[in-house]
Design a binder for these strands. Sequence first.
DNA 1: TGTACATCAGTGAACGCGCGTTCACTGATGTAC
DNA 2: TGTACATCAGTGAACGCGCGTTCACTGATGTAC
Lengths: 232, 232
Amino acid sequence: MSPVRGARERARIEVTAAIKDEARRALAAEGAAKLSLRAVARELGMVSSALYRYFPSRDELLTALIVDAYDSVGAAAEAADARTLAAGAAPRARWIAVCQAVRAWALEHPHEYALIYGSPVPGYTAPLDTIGPASRVGNALIGIARAAHEGRGIALPPLPAELRPEAVRMAGHFAEGLPPEVTAALVAAWAQLFGLVSFELFGQFTRIVEDRDAFFAHAADQLAHGVGLPAV
Amino acid sequence: MSPVRGARERARIEVTAAIKDEARRALAAEGAAKLSLRAVARELGMVSSALYRYFPSRDELLTALIVDAYDSVGAAAEAADARTLAAGAAPRARWIAVCQAVRAWALEHPHEYALIYGSPVPGYTAPLDTIGPASRVGNALIGIARAAHEGRGIALPPLPAELRPEAVRMAGHFAEGLPPEVTAALVAAWAQLFGLVSFELFGQFTRIVEDRDAFFAHAADQLAHGVGLPAV
DNA sequence: TGTACATCAGTGAACGCGCGTTCACTGATGTAC
DNA sequence: TGTACATCAGTGAACGCGCGTTCACTGATGTAC
């Protein structure tokens, strides 16, 4: 693990990165279902069998791209949160900043977004390695709600009786310390945030929403309201 | 256009339907990007070139499936709305019924759902024929909001100044008669509804939400609240 | 410091497979007189 | 009602193409003594 290793190790790191970069480019052209090792190799000037030195199969390459994408959007969300937090912002402003960061990342990386939040690739099942990275955006949102709860507190109407046990379970499972009604609202808002982004990216807003920045800013603010974050 | 035509015409209708049915089955196995005319033909015991008597290309077949899917979910939403309306339900109950109908349809037709609300098929651009069918669910929601507005009225907080012009435009464009703040909330709720359904269908709720019926029922109710539909 | 051996990236051929689309054709169904 | 012709569904071969993966190999880099 010394920082400088031999030419072999450095080359391996570089080539692995080059393969993933080229695969991301291929994703944009053809989509995940048609991602082709041969096309990637061809573009890199390698022979297709050489890729097997780096990824044991096409699916492993896909997994690497998925993990990278989750980490990328997760890091963008965390960075936006850290920035607003450092600027002394209230939870509501942090929430909006995270939503904006997710949307901005999605607009910059539409094909990686589709890879992780679009239809699943048929015949591919995500391995467990993706779970951690996949939860980073959600965890950022949970952290913001927790800050609001531990600060001024969050007041939300009580849950219907049918949902209470599930909400208690969810809170205990991944949102320790948050009241069940906040946890339930949070999970819904999390899914709804990606609904807004997906509709914009996947073309459902064509001829429907034109000023998308203004629309999204308001919608994100309303999501924060739904989670009970006090207005600024 | 007489109801009974020759054997030729009846056969054509039946074979066209059989091709679409088989294509829907193929969709489930391989996904839209890999939908293959040859595989469909093989399964039907036809030779692949015979399909060209029915669909001039693979993309035309895809378009037919997309239009059918939009019509299918749209009809399900409209039927649910008509049923609750006939039972004398208030707008809030109609709203929830439409949301439930969309979710139920999606759970029954996951691959058709992915076809229309998942990532776009790379290299395929939807023709104009899909616009009408694609707006049926949205129109059902607009109708419910209109009923509430013309009934007891809808009270929502004023919009931020940045969004007002866009909301006025949207209302005039496809929600004539609805106040701009209701229109904006409606479009957001529409996208958010599909965010909830997509997260459930595409696996994001794995290990997160377990009692999905209860969770969705509450989330749909909260969406109605966000649009200003009075509680029942 | 030099040498012998082990490791490993990349090659090129091959396996067996599937794809969309075109085209000239056969033979059954439909239509005009 | 019967006949001649037009329409059209379906065939089968072909074009030119791309795919994932395996395997024995070459030659450069790294390592142990």
